[in-house]
Design a binder for these strands. Structure first.
Length: 657
RNA sequence: GCCGCCUUAGCUCAGCCGGUAGAGCGGCGCAUUCGUAAUGCGUAGGUCGGGUGUUCGAGUCACCCAGGCGGCACCA
C-alpha cells in the first residue's frame, strides 16, 4: 500500500501500482476525463504510470500551468511524427519544450522549406484528431540500441549509448510512432490540443557543438488554448514594432551599411541620445569616486600576450601590422590599458581603491552571423571601469556598485530582475587556487550585500568569476547588461602591485564592472523598452514648436529661442502645412512635447503644449512653460541634486587606510 | 563561421506562368494660411544587391559572391 497526500491535506491509501487515472476515477468520472498528468512529490508523471511509492499527490488537468510544458513537449513529438510521415527517411534527434513553445531537431539531407511548415501543421492536426494513445514502455538498453539502429535512427541509438548504465530506457509509443523519451507525456495526442503554430526553420548543431553535423530545427509555439496562442502571436507583433532597428530607422537615430558591418553610423539625433546617456553615466560615476582616463586604441601584441588575451582571443581582435613589422591590436577591452595606468608609479595601500573609468571605443571581430543591430556590434563603447582594491575592500566596493546599479536602472525606468553568479569556465587563465579564492570572495561579497543570486557553473569570464545583472524591460523581456567580475589573474599576469601597511608588495584585486555594459547594446534595449518614446530628459528632440499659420512665425521663432535658451532641445516647424499634419508627423516621430502656436498664442505670449500620447492641450505662458519644461527635462540625477536630495560629493584626495 | 530565407525608387512594399518596372509615404513645384494624428493638383526619382549562365528575350529561371533577416555556434 502507498499513502498519498492530496492538495487539500487529506490522505488516502492505495494499492501499489495504482495509476493516476484510477485515482482520478475514484474521485469522480469528470476528473478522470479531464486528468492528463499527475504530480508526485513535485515530479510530473504520466497519468497511466503505476505509482510505486506514496507522497504529496496532485492530479493535473491540461488547464494547469504545470501541464503546459508537457503540452509543448507532446506537440514537439506530434510534429516529429508528422515530419516522419511526410518525409520518410528523416531521422529524429531531440525535441524539447522551451519558453513559449518547442522545437525538434531533424537530420535530413534535403533542407525543409518554409512552404513545408503549413503541410506539417496540417498533418499535426490530423494526428491530434486521430487521438493516438501515448504509452510509456521500458525497454532493454541493448535491444533499444539495436532497434533504433535497425530503423536507421542513428542519433537515437547514440543517445541511448550515452545514457548512464543504470538509467531506465523509456520509449513512448504514440499510435505506431515511437520515440525515446524521458517523459512525461499526456495520455493521448488529442490532449495536446491544436493551439500550436510552427514558427521558424533553423540550423542547429547536433549536441550544440559546431564540430558536429548540422541538423534542421523546426521551432513552434504551443499553448493550452487558442486564445493564449492568439495572445502570444499578438505579443510577438507588438515586440516587432519595438524593434530598435526599425525605430532607429524611423526616428533617424543611426544606420548600418555594408562597408561597416556591425558598426553604427550615429546620426545627429541618435548621437544626441547617446551623449545624453553617457553624460548621465559620467556624472554618476564621477560622483561615485571614479576617475575617467583614456588609453590607446592600438597596443602592441606583446601586451595582449602578457594579459592572456592574445592566446584566447586573438582571432577575435582586429590586428594590423606596420611597415616596420610591429604587430598592433585594436583594443577589444580596456583592462590591460587600465592596469598600465595603475602600474605607472608606485601605489600605496592608502590610495586604494583606485577606480579607473573609460568610455572609449572598443572593437571586437564578432563573427558575421552573430551581428544583430545594436545588440551585437563590432564597434562599441562601455561604461567600463576597473577598481583596483585590497581584498578587504571587495565587499564595500560590491555594495557601492550594486547601489549605483540600482539607482541607474531606476533612473532609466528599467527594473533589476535577477542576479547570477557565473563561475569558472573550462577554458580560463589563472591557477585553480586563484579561482577558488576569487569565486569564494565574490560569492561572499554578494551574500554580504544581500543579493539573491543563481549560480551558473562554467559561465564565468576568461579570467574572472562574474556577477551578472539582468534587467527586465517594459514588455517583460530580460537582458543581461550589468556585470561585476572579480579578477585576481590579470593583476598577476600584468604584475600590478601596491605597497601595503607592512611595507611589502601586495597584489591588488581588480574588479571589472559595467552597468550598461555595451552602450550600443544598452541603447538598443532602451529603444525597445520605451518603443522610441523616451522620457523627456533622454529624447533627442524634446520639443517642437509648430505654427498654425505663418502669422505666428515670428513669435514661434522667439518661443523656440526662449525654450532653447533654457537648454531644451527644440525644433521649429514653420512649414506651410496644417496643424493636424504637423501634430501627426511629430507624434509619429515620438516627440515628447509639441508646442503649438497660432495667432492667439502669439498675442497672449503663450504656448499650447501637447504631450505625446495625449490629445489634451495645456495653455501656458511662454516663460512659465520654458521654466517648467526645463526643470522637467533635467536628467534625474541633476533633478535630485537641484531638489537638494543629494549634495555633490567632494573628491577625497586620500582616505585613511 | 554554419543552416535556411530575403535583397525592386530616400522609406514601406506590389510585380502570377520569363516579353525591357508600379503604388503609398517622403522629396520638389504650384495652389491653400487652414486651430491639434494625413489639404489638393502637378512633378522628378529605380534597370530591379553584384556577377556569370540558360534563353530570341530575365527583376522574374540556374549558379557564384556580398549584405540583411531568423536560428545555431561564439561572446573578454
Amino acid at each position: 500500500m502507498i499513502d498519498l497526500i492530496f492538495p487539500d491535506g487529506s490522505q488516502r491509501q492505495f494499492d501499489d501500482g495504482v495509476t493516476g487515472r484510477a485515482i482520478a476515477g475514484s474521485i469522480s468520472k469528470s476528473l478522470e476525463k479531464k486528468a492528463v498528468l499527475v504530480k508526485l512529490d513535485g515530479e510530473l508523471l504520466d497519468l497511466d504510470r503505476p505509482l510505486a511509492r506514496g507522497g504529496r499527490f496532485e492530479i493535473l488537468t491540461r488547464e494547469s500551468p504545470e501541464a503546459l510544458e508537457t503540452i509543448r513537449h507532446d506537440v514537439s513529438h506530434i510534429m516529429a511524427e508528422a515530419v516522419q510521415e511526410l518525409f520518410p527517411g528523416t531521422q529524429v534527434t531531440i525535441g524539447p519544450a522551451i519558453e513559449d513553445g518547442f522545437y525538434y531537431d531533424f537530420a535530413r539531407d534535403e533542407p525543409f522549406s518554409l512552404d513545408d511548415l503549413p503541410k506539417i501543421e496540417q498533418r499535426m492536426k490530423e494526428i491530434v484528431e486521430r487521438d493516438e494513445p501515448i504509452k510509456r514502455e521500458v525497454w532493454d538498453r541493448d535491444e533499444a540500441i539495436r532497434h533504433f539502429e535497425s530503423i536507421g535512427e542513428r542519433y537515437k541509438a547514440e543517445i541511448i549509448r550515452d545514457l548512464p548504465e543504470d538509467e531506465e530506457i523509456s520509449v513512448y509509443r504514440q499510435g505506431s510512432w515511437k520515440d525515446l523519451c524521458l517523459g512525461p507525456h499526456l495520455p493521448s495526442t488529442r490532449a495536446a490540443g491544436k493551439a500550436f503554430k510552427l514558427t521558424k526553420l533553423a540550423g542547429a548543431y547536433w549536441r550544440g557543438d559546431h564540430r558536429n553535423p548540422q541538423l534542421q530545427r523546426i521551432y513552434g509555439t504551443a499553448w493550452a488554448s487558442e486564445a493564449e496562442l492568439d495572445a502570444y502571436l499578438h505579443r510577438l507583433e507588438e515586440a516587432e514594432k519595438r524593434d530598435h532597428r526599425k525605430i532607429g530607422q524611423a526616428m533617424d537615430l543611426f544606420h548600418f551599411q555594408e562597408e561597416g558591418r556591425g558598426m553604427a553610423f550615429w546620426h545627429p539625433k541618435g548621437w544626441t541620445l547617446y551623449r545624453t546617456l553617457v553624460a548621465y553615466m559620467r556624472r554618476r560615476m564621477e560622483a561615485a569616486g571614479y576617475q575617467e582616463v583614456k588609453t590607446p586604441q592600438l597596443l602592441d601584441r606583446s601586451l595582449w600576450e602578457r594579459s592572456g588575451h592574445w592566446d584566447k582571443f586573438h582571432s577575435d581582435m582586429f590586428v594590423c601590422e606596420t611597415d616596420e613589422g610591429e604587430v598592433l591590436a585594436v583594443k577589444p577591452m580596456n583592462c590591460p590599458g587600465h592596469v598600465q595606468i595603475f602600474n605607472h608609479g608606485q601605489r600605496s595601500y592608502r590610495e586604494l581603491p583606485i577606480r579607473l573609468a573609460e568610455f572609449e571605443g572598443l572593437h571586437r571581430y564578432e563573427s558575421s552571423g552573430s551581428l544583430h543591430g545594436l545588440l551585437r556590434v563590432r564597434q562599441l563603447a562601455q561604461d567600463d571601469a576597473h577598481v583596483f582594491c585590497r581584498e578587504d575592500q571587495v565587499e564595500s566596493e560590491t555594495r557601492d556598485f550594486v547601489r549605483l546599479l540600482n539607482l541607474v536602472y531606476a533612473d532609466l525606468g528599467v527594473e533589476l530582475h535577477a542576479v547570477k553568479l557565473a563561475l569558472r569556465p573550462e577554458v580560463r587563465a589563472g591557477s585553480d587556487e586563484m579561482w577558488d579564492r576569487a569565486e569564494a570572495m565574490l560569492e561572499r561579497a554578494a551574500r554580504d550585500v544581500g543579493l539573491e543570486f543563481e549560480i551558473l557553473p562554467g559561465e564565468g569570464g576568461f579570467y574572472a568569476p562574474k556577477l551578472e545583472f539582468h534587467l527586465r524591460d517594459a514588455i517583460g523581456r530580460t537582458w543581461q547588461c550589468g556585470t561585476l567580475q572579480l579578477d585576481m589573474v590579470m593583476p598577476e599576469r600584468l604584475d600590478a602591485s601596491y605597497i601595503g601597511e607592512d611595507g611589502l608588495k601586495h597584489r591588488p584585486v581588480m574588479l571589472h564592472r559595467a552597468i550598461f555594459g555595451s552602450i550600443e547594446r544598452f541603447l538598443g534595449v532602451l529603444i525597445e523598452h520605451y518603443a522610441g518614446a523616451f522620457p523627456l530628459w533622454l529624447a533627442p528632440v524634446q520639443l517642437v514648436v509648430a505654427t498654425i499659420t505663418s502669422d505666428a512665425d515670428d513669435y514661434a521663432r522667439e518661443a523656440a529661442a526662449a525654450l532653447q535658451a533654457k537648454g531644451l532641445r527644440v525644433e521649429l516647424d514653420l512649414r506651410n502645412e496644417k496643424v493636424g499634419y504637423k501634430v501627426r508627423e511629430h507624434s509619429l516621430a515620438k516627440t515628447p512635447v509639441i508646442a503649438v502656436v497660432g495667432r492667439r498664442e502669439a498675442e497672449q505670449r503663450q504656448v499650447a503644449l501637447r504631450r505625446l500620447g495625449s490629445d489634451r492641450q495645456q495653455l501656458m505662458g511662454l516663460d512659465d512653460a520654458a521654466n517648467a519644461l526645463a526643470s522637467e527635462a533635467s536628467p534625474p540625477d541633476l533633478a535630485r541634486q537641484a531638489a537638494g536630495a543629494l549634495a555633490p560629493r567632494t573628491a577625497v584626495v586620500r582616505e585613511a587606510g
